[in-house]
Amino acid sequence: MNTQATQTKQPETPTAPSFELRLYVAGQTAKSLTAFANLKRICETHLAGQYRIEVIDLTKTPALAAGDQIFAVPTLVRRLPEPIKKIIGDLSNEERVLVGLDVQPVGETA
């Protein structure tokens, strides 16, 4: 899984997703699988239809690590909207992921 296909669901607005996320992992480890599952769940809950996830496996494309200044894995990079934000870890703490992505939890705003 070099670059995973976009995981977008755009039920109502066909516009470009406002959240462009990249998940850097190193192989199919337990941590990377956990991170991916966590990320997907959080995005579905709070950013439905507004996100795009790209998964990069550094064991296959190590040259990409320097570009986004990756040193820890898993690392989630919010490439858009600016500024770039990074969240390292398996994303097990939903609250912190949302803080890191600067996303208002759905339950509170809606």
């Binding site: 820890a72 894995v73 390292i88 803080v99």
Partner: peptide, 11 residues
């Protein structure tokens, strides 16, 4: 950088 959960420096 935000830190959440387990990670390593494999990167």
């Amino acid at each position: 950088i935000e830190e959440t959960g387990e990670y390593d420096l494999e990167g």
